[in-house]
């Protein structure tokens, strides 16, 4: 059964207990950060921060609308990071968690370049790529991920992906009944269906999520073929050019 998680931005209060629970369960070290003028901290994911609450401010007339967006690896159905990993260090568990096997990872950083959400980072201590594991050790033993367990408001919901989608649809219908017009349910069908579904009060771009995220073309085979096809034509032209340039001249033959 594929598990899923709902991140309901409309219910998140920005308490960051998910962030702390993630650090605690996964034994991730705290990092020294700088105050950049916001309560948001840290300002980005890292090798030691796999889950983060982004504080999103949006100007609406004279007011700034403030919402809290909890995010981590989306455990894509078509995971680009997994497709390009040259050492097969990125794996998918039977319940849908995409995780990095630190014992195999070479630290080539190809997954960092391939993720459309820029999620994996380098663990500077272990020198390997690092990201949320969906608490694969917990969910494989019947427990919810640490972040879902710690969330006090029900903003993070964990369960089978079908259950999570049902909850998301139900909450979306409540928002629609309230007259909310801008909300978005994000992740149901993109990239093979994300393992993490977002209920957003606004368009995905407001939260830094690409509206139509694209995996590295390798996953779709398109660019490998188109690049290879153009390269083959060029290779043919060079070979013809080499023949025209290097062919033995008649006077040499004589």
């Amino acid at each position: 059964m594929r598990f899923g998680m709902l991140n309901d931005v409309t219910r998140c209060t920005g308490c960051r207990s998910c962030q702390v629970a993630c650090k605690q369960w996964n034994d991730r070290k705290a990092e020294e950060t700088k105050n950049l003028g916001s309560y948001e901290n840290p300002f980005n994911l890292s090798g030691n921060t796999w889950k983060r609450v982004k504080f999103v401010e949006k100007e609406e007339g004279d007011y700034a609308k403030w919402s809290f967006f909890s995010y981590q690896c989306n455990h894509c159905g078509d995971a680009g990071c997994m497709a390009v990993c040259p050492a097969n260090a990125i794996k998918r568990s039977r319940n849908g968690a995409v995780y990095i096997d630190e014992k195999i990872c070479t630290g080539c950083k190809y997954c960092l370049q391939a993720c459309p959400f820029h999620i994996p980072h380098t663990d500077e201590e272990k020198k390997v790529s690092s990201k949320c594991t969906f608490c694969v050790d917990r969910i494989s033993n019947g427990l919810p991920p640490a972040c879902a367990k710690a969330c006090p408001t029900g903003a993070i919901v964990f369960g089978s992906r079908d259950y999570v989608l049902a909850v998301a649809r139900e909450r979306a219908s409540i928002l629609a009944e309230r007259g909310e017009k801008k909300f978005t349910m994000y992740g149901e069908n993109i990239l093979g269906g994300l393992g993490v579904i977002y209920l957003l009060p606004d368009s995905p771009e407001v939260y830094g999520l690409p509206e139509k995220p694209k995996n590295p073309p390798a996953v779709n085979f398109v660019n490998v073929f188109s690049n290879s096809f153009v390269s083959l034509i060029v290779a043919l032209l060079i070979t013809i050019g080499a023949y025209a340039s290097f062919k033995k001249e008649d006077k040499d033959a004589r």
Partner: peptide, 18 residues
């Protein structure tokens, strides 16, 4: 590579589309 000693791991895998 962040872990140069592990470069051989790439030779243990073969992925046509990577």
């Amino acid at each position: 590579l962040e872990r140069p000693a592990r470069f051989m791991h790439m030779m243990f895998a073969y992925k046509f589309f990577s």
